[in-house]
Computed example of a mutant assay.
Amino acid sequence: MAQSSDTTGPVTAACHCGAVKITVSRKPKEINECQCTLCRRYRAAWAYYDPTDVDVLVMNDTQPREYLWGDREIRFRFCGACGCVTHWRSVDEGGQEMGVNTRMMHPDLLRDANRKVDNEQLSVPLKSRDSAHPEDQARYL
């Protein structure tokens, strides 16, 4: 069943098995398909929210998993049961932004969202060359 396309109410996203449910305050106006070496492999499509506007609920005894890469400043989180990438959050829990994978939302909710393919991350340098992915195109001085 399709969810309402109302822009004002909360929206729920869920992994494939339903063990991780994320509720955000509103549907996204813009979706970013980041092209960094990790996001393009995850095939994620991110909407960005203030962490106070996001509620993450993990059902049953499912243990969410996480992956840190590069400068180890962002925790990519995914369902420990079905493996879906659900969201990311700054390692510094005081961070002002987090990403929710809109691929966990019903497609009908996303019809009016602006989509962009962000190639910016292709050349953003990491703090350490040692932590870069082999395909990282960043330039280090």
Rank of each mutant, 00 (worst) to 15 (best):
L110G: 08
E120C: 00
K127T: 06
P51N: 06
S128C: 01
R72G: 13
N32L: 03
I22V: 14
T52M: 03
R72L: 11
R77P: 02
C15T: 15
A13V: 07
M59Y: 01
L126F: 07
G83E: 10
W46I: 05
D92F: 02
A2H: 04
L109K: 04
R103H: 11
T62D: 05
A2T: 13
A113R: 03
L122S: 03
Q35D: 07
D71H: 09
E73V: 15
Y48D: 08
A113N: 04
M104W: 00
V117F: 02
E97T: 14
S128Q: 06
D55L: 13
R103P: 06
E73I: 15
M1T: 12
H16A: 15
G9N: 07
R41S: 09
C84Y: 03
D50G: 08
N60H: 14
V124N: 08
P28T: 13
P107R: 05
A14G: 12
Q137D: 09
V58P: 06
C36H: 02
E120I: 02
H87I: 07
T37C: 04
P64Q: 08
P107S: 06
L110T: 10
A45W: 01
T62H: 01
C82T: 13
D108S: 14
I22H: 00
V58L: 09
M105E: 01
L110M: 09
V91G: 09
S131F: 02
D61Q: 13
A45D: 00
T23M: 01
R65T: 03
S90E: 10
Q35V: 02
S123Q: 12
S25M: 05
